[in-house]
Design a protein around this nucleic acid. Structure first.
Lengths: 131, 131
DNA sequence: TCCAGTGTATTACGTGTTATGATACACTCA
DNA sequence: TGAGTGTATCATAACACGTAATACACTGGA
């Protein structure tokens, strides 16, 4: 696992997944968790490419996906910025969560687990934690 | 979405995922949910290939993965059979469930959801009941 | 013993995705 | 004007996936 830092951002890249998707996911995570401020400028395509030792094209791919999902706004000649709409970030977060939950439930049901079963299994994870 | 039936098995194949993985997953589901009896013979490589209109190689790929995970036993010249060990099937099921849950929790945490949040979201599914 | 039906292996080919590397263009701002 | 942006294009390579064809090894029943 390769770990690289640029500004306040931290990236962990491996070969198990397309690089552009890992950039996309980790950047989205950072935004959604408030680790990047709304309206903030993120590294330029070339800058991040150099920091991560990948091709600008690969970073571009990730950035374009982010804009497509409304998470960023790009201004030609200026750079790429996190959207300043808190609402949009919230919507992105909950929509993504919905998809993740749907896929999870579908896979578990295919294995014959009921919703009640799933809840029990999750409680078990909580184990020594808060309850 | 293409749906095909062979014996008691039903397969739904699309292009969103490798075919061999869809065969693997749907066959595993059927076993784990008891839709295929323990020790039962499953269609031969050529037979299933013809029914699904794919190449024998593709079915082979799926079958080899199933054997690697201990779900089936292959007997050269005879065919491929579901393991007759209920214990092994149970172990396969719970191991797979563990992996699915781990991946799910990791993705949700990356989006900033706590275990308590996740439980609440799942409860909501139960109430809304869109299955 | 033969043979049809099994699993298995190999080779060649085509396609799509991913990533690289290089180059060029368009835009913005100091 | 020039440096720094996003953007587009081309060629190339590697890899995964699927197809197609062929061949081999094994088993059980006729």
């Amino acid at each position: 696992m390769d770990e690289r830092q640029i500004g306040s951002l931290r990236f962990q890249l491996d070969l198990s997944q397309p690089i552009y998707e890992q950039i996309l996911q980790q950047m989205s995570s950072a935004v959604v968790r408030g680790e990047i401020a709304l309206g903030e400028k993120i590294p330029s395509v070339r800058e991040l490419a150099q920091a991560l030792k990948v091709t600008p094209n690969t970073v571009m791919h990730a950035y374009q996906e982010m804009e497509r999902s409304g998470l960023t706004e790009t201004r030609r000649g200026q750079g790429t910025f996190i959207t300043s709409s808190r609402e949009r970030v919230e919507q992105f977060r909950s929509e993504l969560a919905d998809e993740v939950i749907d896929a999870f439930l579908q896979r578990m049901m295919a294995l014959g687990y009921s919703l009640a079963d799933i809840r029990k299994l999750l409680e078990r994870r909580q184990g020594g934690g808060s309850r």
